[in-house]
């Protein structure tokens, strides 16, 4: 085909044969290299499995109703095991008007409402009957009905909760197939300090591409 090559016919043939022989060799070598599997398989460091605690769906507080249903120990709610009947417990404040929690109730941290305004035990507890709660307008409620008490101040939120728009829910959205389990206010909120405490987040994503986040890395803020 080419005409501008300076090679003589015999030389040209020798070149052709040479190239063909070389190709035979190269192809054979390639076949060997392909079979030798020099590249290996891709490998990436394995992602650790997530701590199962992050998969837990249980509410993190138990209400009086939960305990009663589960027939658990309710002695914490038996106020008159310690308190005297017909004798309202005294409430003391320090110089800054912060309530002084007695040693017997040291597990209670007060933090309801801003500016320490809602710091009076008997805003919710009934001083003449510690076994019940009461609203500001004088309705008496059992511990199992605590959500109604919350609603007596937090009207809009209570409305949302009743409609299912506030608070946790689980089970069946289709009530014809099964029940939905609605949680009470106190399943999530500590009535004495209702703000939901902060928590450690689950591990960040570490997708296929991009810088990988090392789970052991110090948290950054």
């Amino acid at each position: 085909m080419p005409t501008d090559t300076p090679l003589a016919p015999g030389n040209r043939r020798a070149w052709t044969n040479g190239v063909l022989a070389a190709l035979t060799g190269i192809f054979a070598l390639m076949a060997g290299l392909f079979l030798a599997n020099l590249w290996g398989r891709p490998s990436r460091p394995a992602n650790p499995l997530v701590d199962e605690a992050f998969l837990d769906t249980a509410p993190w507080r138990q209400s009086y109703a939960d305990l009663a249903r589960a027939k658990e120990d309710l002695s914490d709610f038996d106020c008159y095991a310690c308190h005297e009947k017909n004798e309202p417990p005294p409430i003391r404040y320090d110089a800054d008007l912060n309530i002084i929690i007695p040693e017997e109730h040291e597990t209670i941290k007060m933090g309801h409402g801003s500016h320490q305004r809602n710091n009076h035990c008997f805003n919710c507890h009934n001083e003449s009957n510690l076994l019940v709660l009461h609203t500001r307008d004088g309705r008496e409620l059992s511990f199992a009905e605590s959500s109604v008490l919350c609603g007596s101040c937090h009207g809009p939120t209570y409305g949302d909760w009743e409609a299912g728009a506030h608070g946790r829910i689980s089970g069946y959205w289709d009530r014809s197939r099964g029940p939905a389990h609605r949680l009470d206010c106190v399943n999530c909120h500590n009535p004495h300090a209702p703000r939901i405490p902060s928590r450690t987040p689950a591990p960040p994503p570490s997708p296929l591409r991009g810088p990988r986040t090392d789970p052991s890395r110090e948290p950054t803020h």
Binding site: M1, P2, W15, G18, V19, L23, I26, F27, M30, P42
Partner: peptide, 30 residues
Amino acid sequence: VGDWRYYAWMGVLTIVSLVGLHAYSRQLVD
């Protein structure tokens, strides 16, 4: 059929194509 330049050119292209095919078959597996 062709002269040595044709074979050399086609040979190089075949070699590169085969390397590519090998790479692709790896991609198919992994």
